Computed example of a mutant assay.
Amino acid sequence: MPHQGEILQETIKNSGISITRIVDGLGITRPTMYRKFKEETLDYAFVKRVGEIIGHDFSNDFTSSHQSVLPFVTHKADVTPVNTVTNKSSSLQSTEADPIKQLLALQTKYIALLEAYNELLLKVYGPR
């Protein structure tokens, strides 16, 4: 099974867009891009930026085994409920019915914050 870097490389190759155009859009060098192709796991923001440049949505390209190693994605923890919990805690537990959804919502907010921060850095300091 190909790893994330290989999937990225193959998708870029199939897009017909040159590596030069992509690295210029990302503000990185060609050797950096080729190193990314060798990495088993890639940063979500990086993959998203590449997808925007080549007009491709990578969300369907990574299988669930790939997604489990993406940053901030965790497996559901096995939690054994304790019977001695008060009613107040049980009502709190019912509001947290799906911690995976909450985690993904937090991940989305965090990524949006990082992207806004990166845009601010680009405005202040310019591209690399």
Rank of each mutant, 00 (worst) to 15 (best):
I54S: 13
T41Q: 08
R35S: 10
S65R: 13
E10N: 11
L42C: 04
F37H: 04
T63R: 11
Y34S: 02
T32P: 03
S65V: 13
F62M: 10
N60S: 12
K48C: 11
G25F: 00
L26C: 03
R30I: 10
G51L: 06
N60D: 15
T20S: 14
L42N: 01
K36E: 10
H56F: 13
I28N: 00
S18E: 05
F37W: 00
D24I: 09
P31L: 02
I54L: 14
D57Q: 05
G51T: 05
G55K: 12
K13T: 08
K38T: 13
L42E: 04
A45L: 15
G55L: 12
E40A: 04
T32Y: 10
S65T: 15
G55S: 12
I22P: 01
T20Q: 13
I12G: 01
T41P: 05
D57C: 05
V50D: 02
G27M: 04
I22G: 04
L42S: 02
V47D: 09
T41H: 04
I28E: 05
S64Y: 08
Y34K: 01
I53C: 02
I28V: 11
D24W: 02
Y44V: 15
T29F: 07
D57W: 00
V23C: 04
F58T: 10
T32C: 13
K48N: 09
T32M: 15
G16Q: 00
T29A: 08
R30V: 09
R21H: 12
D24Y: 04
S64G: 09
I53N: 07
G51Q: 03
L26H: 03
M33S: 09
V47W: 07
T32I: 05
R35L: 05
D24M: 11
S65I: 15
P31H: 01
D61G: 04
S15E: 14
S59P: 06
F58L: 07
E39S: 15
I17N: 07
T20M: 12
L26N: 00
E39P: 03
T11M: 02
R35F: 06
D57A: 03
D61T: 06
T63A: 12
S15W: 11
